[in-house]
Amino acid sequence: MSDLLASDVITPDAGKTPLLSLPDVSILKAAPMTRLSLRLREAAIPAAGEAFGAKLPVTPLGAETSAKRVALWMGPDEWTLLAPEDELQAVFDGIEDKLDGQPHSLTDISHRSEALIVSGPKASWLLNTGIFIDFSLEKFPVGTVTRTIFHKSPVMIWRTGEDTFVVEAWISFMDYVAGILVESAEELAAA
């Protein structure tokens, strides 16, 4: 399992046992975190990034990280912002104050989604059991983020290391996503 994570915001949940721990792949629940959905116009991007504490990526599929902050590109005018769970109000208020008078939408989505950390030499193989994306480092380098479908569930995939991915899904789909990942990994172990 790789210990390389892009930020200390995405960490394993210390209160949870690993969902799976095999020599070639592991699946850990990520600790709860602040999640905000931000939509705004191009002119407000620098101010929002300054208020958040990490630049907002403007390159499709991009991510920007700083100490305890992650900004993920979700579309031409949409970002998911991640921060420590206990900093929700401070982050929210800071962005709202900085963007006062500018058209934008900032929504707390912290309780909508959960994340898994999938890591190990077979992590991309495991994700490919339900996602038809080329996860080679050349095509999906570290830092790349995308929304896609895992089997029948919408997910967000973010590569945080050579063999480490964050898989985020809505809470109502997470048992399904985690269950299929564990089942597929157990088939790998049996092979």
Rank of each mutant, 00 (worst) to 15 (best):
G101L: 13
L72E: 03
E78M: 03
A47F: 09
L4F: 11
L181Q: 05
A185M: 05
L61F: 14
S172Y: 11
V58Q: 14
D13S: 06
L181A: 10
F135V: 05
A189W: 03
E42T: 13
G75I: 06
E50T: 13
T146L: 14
T160F: 09
D3Q: 14
R69P: 01
L88S: 02
I149T: 11
V155F: 04
S2E: 15
T144Y: 12
E138R: 06
K16E: 14
M174W: 07
E186A: 04
L116S: 06
H111D: 15
A67Q: 11
R35C: 07
D24K: 11
M1D: 07
Q102I: 10
T17H: 05
P121G: 08
E85T: 02
D86Y: 07
D100Q: 14
D8N: 14
G15I: 02
T65L: 03
I109E: 15
I27F: 02
G15Y: 01
V177W: 09
T160P: 00
A54N: 08
H104L: 11
T34Q: 00
P121D: 08
S7V: 10
W79Q: 04
G53T: 07
I149M: 08
G62W: 08
M1L: 08
E114H: 11
V177D: 10
I133F: 10
L72D: 08
L19N: 04
A51Q: 08
S184L: 06
W125K: 08
S21D: 13
F135H: 02
G101H: 13
Y176F: 15
I180W: 14
A44K: 05
L40F: 05
I45K: 11
I45E: 09
L116I: 06
M156K: 09
G179Q: 06
W170H: 10
K55Y: 05
L28S: 02
M74R: 13
V155Q: 04
S105T: 14
D134Y: 01
E85L: 12
D13M: 02
F173W: 08
V58F: 05
V142S: 01
L81Y: 04
I117S: 12
S124M: 07
A71I: 04
D100S: 15
L82P: 00
L106K: 13
I10M: 13
T80P: 00
D97I: 12
F173H: 12
P23L: 06
R41M: 11
F132M: 15
A83W: 01
V166H: 10
D175V: 08
L88Q: 10
G53I: 12
L40K: 05
E50P: 00
I45T: 11
L61S: 03
E162R: 15
G179C: 04
H151P: 00
I95A: 04
V25T: 03
T59H: 06
D3N: 15
I171G: 06
P84N: 05
V167R: 07
E87P: 00
L36R: 09
A123H: 07
A47L: 15
G75V: 04
F132P: 00
D3P: 00
V70M: 12
I180K: 14
L20V: 06
T129K: 15
S113Y: 13
K139G: 00
A71M: 03
H111V: 13
A123I: 08
V166I: 15
E96Y: 01
D86Q: 09
K139M: 01
S172T: 14
G15L: 07
A67M: 12
G94Y: 06
K55A: 15
F135L: 03
F150G: 01
A169I: 06
L181H: 08
V177M: 10
D77S: 11
V182R: 13
R39S: 13
L81Q: 01
G62L: 05
